[in-house]
Design a protein around this nucleic acid. Structure first.
Lengths: 227, 227
DNA sequence: GCAAGCACTATATGCGTGTATAGTGAGCTA
DNA sequence: TAGCTCACTATACACGCATATAGTGCTTGC
């Protein structure tokens, strides 16, 4: 019943807001299909009919949640980067639970085919593409694909959160787990795993003469070699 | 009605096999919850009751599909690596559609909490860990986390397949799309995106004295900076 | 003080779902 | 040919779901 979607606007302590927050929480945790209108109502402490009264339908509620979550995340980032909160050491820890929740929700939304989340994905790809062009232009020749893969992997990693947490023995959404994951991610981004020459050779061998070789679905992954 | 799960065993052209194949296809395409027993029956050209007759329940059918998909993938890989099909240029293209289907299915299974798929994930992490230790020991100090992130990203990328395909303008499960994605992936693995020194500095700044900094959920992602 | 409006509840309706049961007909065995 | 087995179908059942409708009581403005 607490409000994990940090400091809401004033008019927002209403039942309507409680419903929306409960929905985001449950959608994030159990998925859209895994959550019933009754679950949300119970979590929000209201009757199921009130959801319809305020939002019309489950789908409409979901869309409200989408835009709210997106908006909330943007607001937090603005606050962080634009309002000088970067310097405030207490800010990030204070919003961390909210951010975790929002990311979980948006990951679900991405998987569930939400158009708002899809738009966010596209925007992240565009931004990443620009970033790479500017700061690391040498890493690829196909910036668009590179950025798409980057964002896809990044958000996909979140989608696989359960499995990553399990193999790590620690929930990656706790501070400890996140630190561990972020460390590995940093290693990942800052050291090349494969020999560039090997890759160019492999590419050359695969592409030009006859290319009968759309390899396994995760072709270049060293991990997929086993079994 | 065609049988996309390549050359089945002889006794396998039975209705039972058709049901199983139809289930894998539909589960892969629409997800577990998005597929009804009736859908599967229709796709397999049988009556819904027959599913129960052969498999007992939808959940039991799902488990059969899990182990079958896993088994099938292993078989194909064995055939490829162990039976000298590596040299055969026609082999990969011939099994490509099957592999795509199996990967789609297994990604769904991963997302849907299948225990078999989870075991596969764990095994892939272990194999990746061994591979990194052996072939690229310098990239990290935390091999386990590195491998978990590697496999998580790789499978997560598949989970985000719709979005990646959309931003790329080409389905990554077609030969063309896959080639493009694999190229970006190869760039990704063979060039470091971030300056190692920058990362070690950042790590040092974050870790030791006070660590009020469990950054955003995708902290180190350059793409997440924007907005 | 009174009526209108609105947040909210209780209850009902219809549908899609997984599952259960009874029945049918072809093929095999004796 | 008689009878049995078993793959398979048709139909029914029970249930959970989203959604719809009717009703209630508090709040507000006049």
């Amino acid at each position: 019943m607490g409000d994990p979607i940090g400091d809401p606007a004033f008019e927002d302590l209403t039942a309507r807001a409680r419903i929306r927050d409960a929905a985001i929480r449950l959608f994030a945790e159990r998925g859209i299909d895994g959550t019933t209108v009754r679950d949300i109502a119970q979590e929000a402490g209201v009757s199921p009919g009130l959801l319809r009264h305020h939002f019309g339908s489950k789908e409409a509620l979901r869309e409200v949640c989408d835009t709210y979550a997106l908006d909330r995340l943007v607001k937090i980032k603005e606050e962080f980067y634009l309002e000088g909160k970067v310097a405030n050491p207490g800010f990030l820890p204070s919003v961390h639970p909210t951010i975790v929740l929002l990311y979980k929700y948006l990951t679900r939304a991405l998987l569930g085919g939400s158009s708002g989340a899809a738009a966010m994905f596209d925007e992240m790809v565009t931004l990443s593409e620009q970033w790479v062009r500017k700061h690391a232009p040498a890493v690829t020749e196909d910036y668009r694909a590179y950025a798409a893969v980057l964002v896809g992997m990044q958000s996909g990693l979140l989608a696989m959160h359960d499995h990553v947490s399990r193999t790590l023995g620690v929930d990656i959404f706790t501070t400890e787990g996140h630190l561990r994951m972020a460390g590995a991610l940093a290693d990942f981004y800052s050291h090349s795993l494969l020999d560039p020459e090997f890759v160019t050779k492999a590419r050359a061998a695969m592409e030009p003469p006859r290319a009968p070789n759309p390899p396994t679905a995760t072709g270049t992954d060293p991990g997929a070699e086993g079994a």
